[in-house]
């Protein structure tokens, strides 16, 4: 009985991003940077070294003018469920610095445990993990804008999108104070969801039929990235364009149907 209750209580926080609405403006990226104390350097144009938890990719259909099409795809951490919480990164971390939380479905990153071996970066098929090659430096006075809810990362550790877990903690604390154990949908939203000027990002509990994501993930327009790998990502995308849905996974050229 206790086990059943536990399972019923378990959340599976996830995201649905409507690519038909996304304009690729990058507000999600910047809102994320401001929320999560992401540092910046003088030259950030080498994207392999640039730290952004949520990167907006530009996809093209590769057709010549005027049949060309482009689509932007914001990519946070997929918070892969894997099988029994064995997401690719969690499985390889020798330091237990990253963990799959069965209560929320969030893949955590504990900076003080991380010793920078970067196995997780190699294991992650989505390139969501980023390494701090340098200590973060803020120009004089700019450290004033740092958010006390999120620790600043030091050189030598890996970081990634946390689904703004600190917002979950704050919301839960408030709920406990009010004698509640459950959160309303609006009480826990990530910074990118909140900021998106197009309202393209929806966030919530994928297990909860009352949450918008529960319905949206079942849309015929829905797909996930690299589904064939069996990582069971918790970020869904919606697109009415067939080539965009196809671009979500690796396909052979003659292959028409998604598996």
């Amino acid at each position: 009985m206790e086990a059943v209750n536990r399972r019923n209580r378990a959340k599976k926080y996830g995201m649905v991003i409507d690519l038909d609405k996304c304009t690729g403006c990058g507000s999600c990226t910047v809102a994320c940077m401001a929320e999560n104390n992401i540092p910046f350097r003088k030259d950030e144009s080498d994207k392999l070294l640039s730290i952004a938890w949520l990167h907006v990719y530009k996809l093209t259909n590769g057709k010549p003018f005027p049949h060309t099409d482009v689509c932007y795809l914001p990519r946070p951490c997929m918070h892969c469920e894997g099988h029994h919480g064995h997401s690719p990164c969690v499985s390889v971390c020798p330091a237990t610095a990253t963990d799959y939380d069965e209560e929320t479905g969030i893949v955590s990153q504990i900076y003080t445990r991380c010793f920078g071996c970067r196995y997780c970066m190699a294991a992650c098929p989505y390139h969501v993990r980023l390494f701090n090659w340098w200590d973060p430096v803020w120009p004089d006075g700019m450290e004033k804008m740092l958010n006390p809810d999120v620790s600043v990362r030091m050189r030598g550790v890996v970081e990634k999108c946390s689904f703004c877990y600190h917002r979950h903690q704050r919301a839960m604390e408030k709920a406990y104070l009010e004698g509640r154990r459950e959160l309303e949908e609006h009480e826990y939203q990530t910074a990118c969801t909140q900021a998106c000027p197009a309202g393209a990002i929806t966030f919530g509990d994928l297990n909860n039929p009352k949450h918008a994501v529960y319905r949206l993930k079942k849309s015929p327009r829905a797909f996930r990235l690299l589904e064939r790998l069996g990582t069971r990502p918790k970020v869904y995308y919606l697109s009415s364009r067939e080539w965009v849905r196809q671009a979500g996974d690796n396909h052979l050229q003659q292959e028409k149907q998604k598996i």
């Binding site: 990058g26 507000s27 910047v30 809102a31 940077m33 401001a34 804008m145 958010n147 900021a195 000027p197």
Partner: peptide, 25 residues
């Protein structure tokens, strides 16, 4: 610390662009 869109506002209803979101910078 952070600039967010104002919910319920007739123009942006909670949304914000990236310039607005980086006002603290």
């Amino acid at each position: 610390v952070k600039i967010e869109g104002m919910p319920g506002h007739p123009v942006n209803d909670g949304g914000i662009c990236l310039l607005g979101a980086s006002g603290a910078q």
